[in-house]
């Protein structure tokens, strides 16, 4: 096993750890906003480590940059969706806020 493989193994393990932590938070936290926090923050970090782990094995700079692009887009989408869900879950006030 080369040093690069060891690096990937470590990164993927850490990534999977963050996903597990996010899932535990989703299942165990008491209300929507804390659950959302666990899910989006931990999973985005986990995905980042998974991307870091697979990058050396894609055979080139361009494919590696592509998965980084996937990570950035996923973060952007998850962050936006989390904000929208959190706002929609706020208690309604007159006049009603955007959903």
């Amino acid at each position: 096993m080369s040093a690069l493989d060891l690096f990937s193994l470590a990164a993927l393990t850490v990534g999977a750890g963050f996903f597990v932590a996010g899932t535990v938070g989703l299942l165990r936290f008491p209300d929507l906003h804390t659950r959302l926090h666990a899910l989006t923050k931990a999973d985005n970090l986990g995905l980042g480590f998974v991307v870091l782990g697979v990058m050396p094995h894609l055979g080139g700079l361009l494919p590696a940059l592509k998965v980084v692009g996937v990570w950035v887009l996923a973060m952007l989408a998850a962050g936006t969706a989390a904000q929208l869900v959190a706002r929609a879950a706020l208690p309604r006030r007159p006049p009603p806020e955007e959903g």
């Binding site: 952007l76 989408a77 936006t80 904000q83 929208l84 706002r87 806020e97 955007e98 959903g99």
Partner: peptide
């Protein structure tokens, strides 16, 4: 209904 300058509007300008 979306707030101008809100998260949704920014996302929809970026993507």
């Amino acid at each position: 209904h979306a707030r101008p300058g809100g998260v949704m509007a920014t996302f929809a300008r970026l993507v």
